[in-house]
């Protein structure tokens, strides 16, 4: 019961503080811009070959998904960094943690609230890009559900790491740490991609090490691999697709990583003096 009350409060907080609405309004602006871009591209694109035309439009679609994913990452870090650290600093947590509910219920309640909110956001943003791309250009997202699922896992992973950091660090330190870790993963992902194109095993290895350290970007790259057209991965027309898809083992590793982060966050929060 306490878990659901906390989940409801967390979700309502985002709505009342206008975080969710502003994110959705900004997201609507993003989708409008994307739609406008696609409209003009469809109107003005003159290529002799239909296959090339389809690839260009698919590339635009992947660019939209890529940008939506980036916004999802930032949104996750921004909303999750303050939740525990901020309430511990302000003392708000005292009135909650003295109620008849365990620390685990408090943290899981918050997790559920944020997870619900991120689900809505991802569905709106990436779903919106997929739908608009199809309606305006006829470009389709391959394996949409797998792709959305992987992006969802990516944001949950970042959420869990932010909650873990929030049990020990201040709001600012939490945000900086999670953003820094994702930055490492992001850069590692690009190094790995370039390494795959240039056949540099060393660069690929650097990317793999970065992914082990923080597998968030790997989940996006796997999602991109699932969602892009089969030809795109082969001809590598766009930087928004992927040529070096992380393996299923890496996805499993990321799932284990996010679960371990959540378990550690629960443990730290249970043992922490408030």
């Amino acid at each position: 019961m306490g878990t659901w009350v906390m989940a409801g409060v967390t979700f309502r907080e985002a709505a009342r503080k206008k975080v969710l609405w502003m994110a959705l309004i900004a997201g609507a602006g993003f989708l409008a811009l994307f739609a406008t871009g696609v409209h003009f591209q469809v109107r003005d694109l003159h290529v002799p070959n239909e296959a090339i035309r389809r690839q260009v439009l698919n590339s635009t679609l992947m660019m939209g998904l890529y940008a939506a994913d980036l916004l999802t990452v930032l949104m996750t870090i921004l909303i999750a960094a303050d939740t525990l650290a901020g309430e511990i600093t302000s003392g708000t947590i005292h009135a909650i943690a003295t109620k008849p509910l365990t620390r685990r219920q408090i943290l899981l309640g918050k997790w559920l609230g944020f997870a619900g909110m991120l689900t809505v956001y991802i569905a709106f943003m990436l779903g919106g890009v997929a739908v608009l791309g199809y309606l305006l250009s006829g470009a389709t997202v391959q394996h949409l559900w797998q792709g959305l699922g992987l992006v969802w896992l990516e944001s949950i992973l970042l959420l869990n790491v932010a909650l873990l950091c929030g049990t020990s660090f201040s709001t600012l330190a939490t945000g900086v740490t999670v953003l820094g870790l994702h930055g490492v993963a992001f850069l590692g992902g690009w190094i790995e991609q370039i390494g795959a194109v240039t056949h540099s095993q060393g660069a690929v290895n650097v990317g793999i090490v970065a992914s082990i350290l923080m597998p968030s970007e790997s989940l996006w790259r796997r999602a991109a691999f699932e969602m892009q057209s089969p030809l795109m991965g082969v001809v590598n027309l766009s930087p928004f697709g992927t040529t070096s898809a992380p393996s299923t083992m890496m996805v499993v590793y990321a799932v284990v990583y996010l679960l371990v982060a959540l378990v550690l966050a629960l443990r730290n929060f249970r043992l922490r003096d408030l």
Binding site: T92, P100, L101
Partner: peptide
């Protein structure tokens, strides 16, 4: 005493009451 400042007074007591079960 600090709590979510976006709640109204009645809502705050409602949240706390539900946390008490």
């Amino acid at each position: 005493f600090r709590f979510y400042d976006w709640l109204t007074a009645a809502e705050l007591l409602d949240v706390h009451g539900r946390l008490y079960g």
